[in-house]
Write a protein that binds this DNA or RNA. Sequence first.
DNA 1: CCATTTTACATACAGTCTGTATGTTTTTGT
DNA 2: ACAAAAACATACAGACTGTATGTAAAATGG
Lengths: 192, 192
Amino acid sequence: MSRSNRERTEQTRQALIDAGRCIFVEKGYAETATPEIVAAAGVTRGALYHHFEDKKALFQAVIACEAQAVAKAIEAASAPEQGTRAALIAGASAYFAAMAQPGRTRLLLMEAPAVLGSPAAAALDAENAEASLREGLAAFLPEAGALLDPLTSLLSAAFDRAAIAIEAGGDRRDYERAIAALLDGLADHLRR
Amino acid sequence: MSRSNRERTEQTRQALIDAGRCIFVEKGYAETATPEIVAAAGVTRGALYHHFEDKKALFQAVIACEAQAVAKAIEAASAPEQGTRAALIAGASAYFAAMAQPGRTRLLLMEAPAVLGSPAAAALDAENAEASLREGLAAFLPEAGALLDPLTSLLSAAFDRAAIAIEAGGDRRDYERAIAALLDGLADHLRR
DNA sequence: CCATTTTACATACAGTCTGTATGTTTTTGT
DNA sequence: ACAAAAACATACAGACTGTATGTAAAATGG
């Protein structure tokens, strides 16, 4: 049973990312040791340092995977398009559903900003969830003008906090109602 | 020149907290090594492990200091009290001013949630900034009802993101306007 | 299809870090 | 002044990180 180099690399990288994800979620970046990761992945540290520059690079790969998965889940859920408000509410719901994957809030919203820096983590997020939020807001609040960018940023943070609260046991509908109140309030307010 | 034990302990603890704060801000928790901290503090590792259980306990002390400083700054700024809306806006402004202290956003909003866990970091925040936000909101939005808690949480997250954006170079007034729009929108909306 | 190079790892190693155990000095209580 | 305790400093064991080096399998070229 011989594997091509492409296959070997792909499988090893994925095994390291999967194992890394698991242990990073469990113990956090700072307390995670590479020997434990490679043991879980069934390889040696040699393989890790062959495929990734260092521990942080592996973490970055894990985060990139997670962010991509969230983006894909949201994109897949944005089908109907009945109106600008409904689109925003549906997007929020899809975001919460995507972030309900165990460990995802810890990885994307707590560990990543600390390890990669807020700019880098925000950049990953911006390319994904935040971009579609901005589009939705622009359609829903054409009067926003210069406030669009700050509002996008602040609401994105509110979404993130809601996702954390929901994973911590908060009622999802409570937070969806609060988000709706913020959005509807903005619409009421900016229309005058 | 002999110091009392009380003085010795206080000075050493403070030196460790100050040096730790400096290096945690510079390199983040995971990349910070205790030898560097004690060198900056002018003591040995023995002193560190005499006063703190481990590296994380020192970090926790640093965070507690920062959170307390923020709480004190906000409390000191809430003097006038002209109205519920003005009080909220003034609170926001005071929060941004307090968080403008270099490194504070990184420590309180990025490192702490990762190292201490979101619950613990949120608890520290809840006792301080978030509690006064809830009070302000309750007075400003008496119609909020069951939405008060989720809204407090989401708006607190928005404040945090704004503080990060401001330290990253964003215009403070842009974010204050966006916050005001969110608050005024809520008031408009809930009043129907 | 064989020789050579390159890739994908595994092993070995040097330096550093963490936490602990133990030793020493200074303060405190009597 | 003496015993006890506190505040450190020093020494050490184990573990971890990143690198250097070695090896086997796959790609490459003639």
